Computed example of a mutant assay.
Amino acid sequence: MSMQSPWLILVAGLLGVFVGMIAMIAFRYSEKSQTEVPERTEPELADDIIRVLAVVRSAVIVLGPGDVVLRASPAAYALGMVRGEYLVHDQVREVVEQVRATGEIVDEELELQRGSQRDLVIVGVRVAYLTNEVVVIFAEDHTQARRIEQIRQDFSVNVSHELKTPVGAISLLAETLESAANDPEAVRRFAGKTKQEAVRLAALVHDLIELSRLQSASALMDVRLVEVDDVIAQAAEDVRVIAQGREQDITLPEASTWRVYGDEALLVAAIRNLLTNASAYSPKNSSIQIALSRKDGMVGIEVLDHGIGLSEQDQERIFERFYRSDPARARDTGGTGLGLSIVKHIAQDHGGQITVWSAPGQGSTFTLWIPESQEESDSHHNDIENEEGNRSA
Rank of each mutant, 00 (worst) to 15 (best):
E149M: 14
V356Q: 06
L120K: 07
A191C: 09
Q289Y: 07
L220T: 03
W369P: 00
V88P: 05
D332P: 08
L15F: 03
L10T: 12
Q215M: 09
F138N: 05
T35D: 11
N386E: 13
V60F: 01
G124W: 05
A181C: 15
V239W: 00
R40E: 11
I49Y: 04
I9T: 13
L120E: 04
S311A: 04
A12F: 11
V205A: 07
E227Y: 09
R188C: 12
S218K: 11
L266E: 02
V303M: 01
I342H: 02
S5K: 12
H350T: 02
D383T: 11
S364R: 05
L211E: 05
F27Q: 10
R329E: 00
S377N: 12
Q215S: 09
I370M: 02
Y323I: 05
V223C: 11
I346T: 01
Q98H: 15
V157I: 15
Y323N: 05
I170G: 05
E385Q: 13
M21H: 15
P371M: 05
S30D: 12
R40Y: 11
P371A: 02
R57T: 10
W7T: 11
S160C: 11
V239R: 01
R126V: 06
L220G: 08
V106E: 04
M3Q: 12
A139W: 01
Q144P: 07
Q215R: 09
K344D: 05
I9V: 13
D263V: 02
R321F: 13
A12T: 10
H380E: 11
V82T: 01
L45W: 00
G80Q: 03
N285V: 11
A180L: 10
D349A: 15
E227P: 07
D67W: 07
D383Q: 10
S216N: 06
H350L: 01
E162S: 15
V268G: 03
A359W: 02
L79Y: 00
M24A: 13
L172M: 08
V226L: 03
V68Q: 14
S33N: 10
V69G: 05
N382P: 14
L208F: 06
R57Y: 14
Q196D: 08
W258P: 14
Q113K: 12
A328M: 09
L368Q: 01
Q315T: 07
W258L: 13
L304G: 09
A145K: 13
E39G: 13
S33Y: 10
Y77D: 14
T102I: 05
Y323R: 06
S287A: 15
A59D: 01
W7D: 15
S325D: 09
F190C: 11
R224H: 07
D107C: 12
G351V: 08
N386F: 15
L274R: 02
S179V: 08
R126E: 00
G339V: 06
L120R: 11
